Amino acid sequence: MKFTCEKSNLQEAISIVQKAVTGRSPMPILEGIFIEAINNELRLIGSDIDLSIETKINANIIESGRIVVDSKIFGEIIRKLPNDEIAIETTENNSIIITCQNSIFNLIHLNADEFPSLPNIDDDMMFVIPQSTLKNMIRGTSFAIAQDETRPILTGILFEINDKMLNMVALDGYRLAIRNEYIDTENSISAVIPGKTLNEVAKVLEDTNEIANITFTTNHILFNLGVTKIISRLLEGEFIKYSSIIPQEFNLKVTVNKQKLQNGIERASLMAKEGNANLIKLDIEDESMVITSNSQLGKVREEVAINLQGTTLQIAFNSKYLLDVLKIMDEEEVVMEFSSSVSPCVVKNKEKNNCKYLVLPVRLAK
């Protein structure tokens, strides 16, 4: 194998496929990056079996071939080389020579035949969605994925298409996040994608209207993003019937400026960090919401103007859970619906009906 290519292109391709190389696989070959040189193109793959990422770059292929090189050391070498053309060729003794300007590295490579092939995915169940839309939907739900492995299904995001509507849902027992967007398809699907996969997909997605092609099989999902493909195993099991958790009625409704509320909660939570679960209290009155927190460090009182429909209420929350929701909402005003001091609060946009968030309150000792 022998080829030349631009350092910047190779470095970017390595950083994309490295996202799938965890170093935790029982197969040592998966600590490497698979590289195939053919038809003036370089194909790179990183994998940990559950998640595989493939990308391609243009290169001047002098002699075709395929190898596997250690992901960490190869990535470091390429990153530290000058910004110029790099030449790579295989030599005797299972090694490659990497040359760039005055730098010459000799690096051992592994046998590419031992690298597991990617799952075969045909295009029966294919959906298209703009990359920016998908990126926003992942951002709007992934914070609510369970970090605890005791219920593996909750470490994923439900991807559900019905009646031309795509719903993405995540919940961790303390909050629930739902994002929905129109999607032009007659197909319907319900699958749970690992949160880790979607967080890596979001890093590769562009903020453009370019299309992401999504294909499902029984056990896998493929994201085809032009030159980059991401293939992931799906999570097995039944996702929680989330619609039954969402309150259908409420006693009071608060409309509030999102940024002012976020700023007030952020300042109040400075006092809440002292080992008491980031606890803040909300006193909802006619025209204002008073946010308080006290700890051994001291106390704080913030007041935010609101528009209230309904009765007054005192309720407490873990401030982190409210802030996670507010930070990813993009409208100027948000609506909060409450039923009682022990029932979940529903947060949604005032204008656009494309998201719904549920946050459980903290019970206060009387």
Rank of each mutant, 00 (worst) to 15 (best):
Q147W: 00
D283S: 15
E89R: 14
S71N: 08
A37L: 02
R151T: 13
H220N: 15
M289C: 15
D70R: 05
Y321W: 04
E238R: 13
T215C: 08
S8N: 14
E200H: 09
E333Q: 13
T217I: 07
S95Q: 14
R179N: 07
E266W: 02
C355M: 07
I77M: 10
D330Y: 03
N307S: 12
K348E: 05
I211L: 13
L198R: 00
A191T: 00
A20S: 14
A87D: 05
G298E: 08
L30F: 08
G237I: 11
E89G: 10
I73Q: 11
Q309I: 13
G195C: 12
D50E: 15
N219Q: 09
S269G: 09
V290A: 03
V335Y: 02
A59V: 07
S343T: 09
L158H: 00
A316F: 08
A268N: 10
N307H: 08
S117W: 00
P361W: 00
G23D: 09
D70H: 12
D113L: 13
N353G: 02
N209H: 06
I246D: 11
E249K: 14
G237D: 07
E302C: 11
Q11T: 07
P361Q: 04
I231T: 14
I96Y: 06
L323I: 13
S71Q: 02
S188A: 06
Q314R: 14
E238D: 14
D122L: 11
N307V: 12
V334H: 02
D84S: 15
L297G: 11
D48F: 06
I16C: 06
I97W: 06
L42S: 02
V334K: 03
N94Q: 14
V192I: 14
R139A: 11
G275R: 13
M336I: 15
L308E: 03
N251A: 09
D172I: 08
K299W: 04
N354T: 12
M329Y: 05
R139G: 08
I161N: 02
N39L: 09
F159N: 00
A37P: 10
E12Y: 12
S117A: 12
A212M: 00
L44I: 03
L297I: 10
A13H: 04
L323C: 04
I280T: 14
E31P: 02
S293H: 10
E332I: 12
T22I: 11
G46V: 04
E210R: 12
D70V: 00
